[in-house]
């Protein structure tokens, strides 16, 4: 085209933005028929896939199944760990406030850790606490307080609550050292003795609640009869090593491109491949700000994709790539046959 050709707004014609009127041939096209054929074929394909492969439905983990599992390989330590021991080791971190949930920060609780930041922007902290969780009370002391028929546990809970923070910290520290060497003997948790005051009774009582299944219900209970918010039990379970060990075995870990995988050999959310790709880049994946970095990158890329038509250079990629020559090969073959008369576009 000549550089002088302009549109009504006085702008020159741009091949990556504008098109000329089609004056070529039109062919019959039965829209309704095409859609119905597509619907039938696609439905049959989907039925075939469903019959052949079905869909996965792996049983969810409960606090009971976690604490009663005979043994599993801890993905963090490589050690073979009985469920009860892992549960007790997790429970003490909930009590002393050192677990992943206890130190998480917003939206669950407040921490001095600034959390993930995007440059100067601490979005997570700015949003504030909206689903408050005090792991010591909500995960340990609160559920034990419901065991009103057990005076020994109630006495331990009262003693712990009435103790000074320093005393609590000393007991917690002593128990944490001891439970690291805990074993399972005849199906019972055995923790080496130590100066941990009521904490031994507290964690032992909570472990009994867990193995009986009572803790699952206690964590789920809310202020109303019907509950659909599983935040507390999910976070408690995720603080332990058991859920992670099952996920690693199912190739669902973050370093296994797990975000786009599904349990078993089923295709998962493959469309999230680019999202999970960034976590495999060491400079991003190893950063404490990885989550917010990846989100920012994906939001930026999505905006770019949506605005491609308005971005000079980016919108020229299709023309430069010449992939369109394959898509419209019949059109260009016809254009060459008639000697460049354009097979219709003018």
């Amino acid at each position: 085209m000549s550089a002088t050709t302009v549109d009504n707004a006085g702008r020159p014609f741009k091949a990556d933005r504008d098109v000329a009127e089609w004056k070529g041939a039109y062919t019959p096209y039965d829209l309704v028929k095409e859609f119905l054929i597509a619907l039938v074929v696609v439905t049959l394909l989907i039925i075939g896939l469903a019959v052949l492969f079905g869909s996965p439905d792996d049983t969810p983990v409960t606090v009971k199944s976690w604490s009663t599992t005979s043994a599993f390989t801890n993905p963090d330590t490589g050690a073979n760990s009985p469920g009860q021991v892992d549960f007790a080791q997790t429970a003490i971190t909930e009590l002393d406030g050192t677990s992943g949930t206890a130190t998480y920060g917003p939206p669950y609780n407040t921490t001095t850790d600034p959390g993930p930041k995007l440059g100067p922007l601490g979005l997570q902290h700015w949003a504030g606490v909206h689903h408050p969780i005090n792991t010591s009370e909500d995960f340990v002391l609160g559920p034990l307080s419901t065991l009103t028929g057990n005076p020994q546990i109630q006495s331990a809970v009262t003693e712990y609550r009435n103790a000074s923070p320093d005393q609590q910290a000393n007991w917690n520290s002593a128990y944490e050292d001891a439970v690291a060497k805990a074993t399972l003997v005849d199906g019972k948790l055995v923790v080496p003795s130590g100066d941990y005051g009521p904490v031994g009774t507290i964690i032992s009582g909570l472990t009994s609640m867990a193995t009986s299944g009572a803790l699952d219900g206690s964590l789920l209970s809310s202020r109303q009869f019907y509950g659909t918010d599983y935040t507390k039990p999910l976070l408690f379970i995720a603080d332990g090593a058991y859920l992670n060990s099952l996920a690693q075995a199912q190739h669902l870990g973050g370093d296994q491109w797990g975000m786009m995988n599904e349990t078993g050999s089923y295709p998962g959310q493959a469309w999230l491949w680019l999202y999970t790709l960034w976590y495999q880049v060491p400079a991003i994946g190893n950063s404490s700000n990885a989550d917010v970095y990846v989100f920012a990158i994906m939001i930026g890329l999505t905006i770019l994709l949506a605005l491609v038509p308005m971005i000079p250079g980016l919108r020229s990629i299709p023309r430069w790539s010449r992939v369109y020559r394959i898509i419209w090969r019949n059109y260009y073959r016809e254009a060459e046959r008639v000697g460049g008369s354009g097979a219709g576009t003018t």
Partner: peptide
């Protein structure tokens, strides 16, 4: 519509642009 074929300008028929 497709891009104009090589060797042929999009404005071969500028009328109506």
């Amino acid at each position: 519509p497709p891009f104009a074929p090589e060797g042929r300008a999009d404005d071969a028929e500028p009328v109506g642009i």
